[in-house]
Write a protein that binds this DNA or RNA. Structure first.
Lengths: 224, 224
DNA sequence: TGCCTGCTTAACAATTTGATAATATTATAA
DNA sequence: TTATAATATTATCAAATTGTTAAGCAGGCA
């Protein structure tokens, strides 16, 4: 199932590239890298990523320039673009906003911060897309905190609901356990692995439909 | 969620114009811009926006003047108008209120603040829009602060009424506790969590109909 | 002033939820 | 096939959340 979100990272420092790549891959993202602004544009055109992380200072074209160019291409009008910057000065940030960045990450990078930011960016984006997810006989209504199945309204507890909503937000995609933990519990709270299982079980029980598939050694996915 | 809301922004600084425009467009709003007070009036007449954001200091006519002129035109009697101002002095704000502004935004602008303010403005507007809500055997009359249920008139205290009206303004939608606090008490007043419960209880008591459902860990919703 | 009403809070009860431990079961690789 | 790791299931308990009641306080009004 290659419904995984694709992320392009552009930075001229191989070390940073590798750290970010590793962490994002652990989380289940597909990662493409670039070593310069020009390279980033090249890779973006080829892979059409869902999110582009641009270092501001790079040889050749810098991040701001690359962003500008990308934003002027129809294909990247709505792509998430995030800057990676050591400078925390307002000037750069305003420049970034003008060119249409969606957020900032400041160096030095803390993997957990990076992950939670990336996750929340995607979440925010998806949330705004549509309030109700409908899949076959199941409808998940975020606003009403309700799941309808077969005409019946099913009430799930908060964690259960969030978990189901997460899985259903990308049907078919396998969510790694880490990914689930980060999205639902956040990076700060630490809970055991069995906890996820138990919640999954409760969901399966309440919806008597078998819509959550276990991928052993990997995670869970929502499927009709 | 059907048709995109139209927003007119008037500011003489292109940078600010662009930042706001970008962020609002990301949020799904349709955006029109103007570079002066006169331009704003011009664009307003042409596009009939749902919300007008006016910088107070602009060449030609300033924001206050523009607002005054607009408010005297029947088409803009009920349009939301917000001022953008670097000045936080009382004088300007009072002037603004006299000319009929609905709210203020102060520079420098933080995109997130802008967005949440704009969103909440529209929410408030929608809420106040409808005079009488009728749902099944319940009728809620905003003007008379009256609730009719089963032919009987029920008098609720102000807070009780506002709370019920808020919940009923979007039947089924779960209102988070924070949302309720913001809408009814505003962002400045701080009251304890039990306060909401107590009001909810009184409403449930007075209307002996069971129409408010608790969604534990989330909030409350109105349901028949 | 003194009474009434509405709003908020404190205190405690009742309820629900979420996490974990313990155990059973299943899938997978050797 | 068996050993092993991963997941499912179940029961239990602590923590979080809400319900309820009563009391205090402020403002309006006769």
């Amino acid at each position: 199932m290659s419904t995984a979100k694709k992320i392009l990272i552009a930075d001229d420092e191989p070390d940073i590239l590798e750290i970010i790549q590793f962490n994002l891959q652990q989380e289940g993202y597909e990662v493409v890298t670039a070593k310069s602004g020009d390279d980033a544009i090249e890779q973006a055109k080829r892979h059409l990523p869902d999110l582009i992380i641009l270092d501001v200072m790079m040889p050749g074209k810098n991040g701001l320039e690359a962003c500008n160019i990308l934003r002027n291409m129809p294909a990247f009008k709505k792509t998430l673009i995030v800057f990676l910057t050591a400078m925390s000065d307002e000037g750069t940030q305003i420049q970034g906003l003008e060119t249409g960045a969606d957020d900032y990450l400041s160096k030095p990078i803390r993997p957990k911060v990076l992950l939670s930011k990336v996750n929340s960016l995607f979440r925010r984006f998806e949330k705004e897309d549509s309030g109700i997810i409908t899949l076959g006989e199941i409808a998940i209504d975020r606003e009403k905190y309700l799941v309808r199945h077969d005409g019946k309204d099913i009430t799930l507890a908060r964690k259960e609901f969030e978990l189901l909503a997460l899985l259903a937000s990308r049907p078919g995609k396998v969510f790694l356990r880490n990914e689930i933990l980060n999205q639902i519990w956040g990076t700060e709270v630490i809970v055991g692995d069995r906890t996820i299982d138990v919640h999954i079980r409760k969901i399966r029980q309440k919806l008597d439909l078998d819509c959550i598939t276990t991928v052993k050694g990997v995670g869970y996915k929502f499927e009709l």
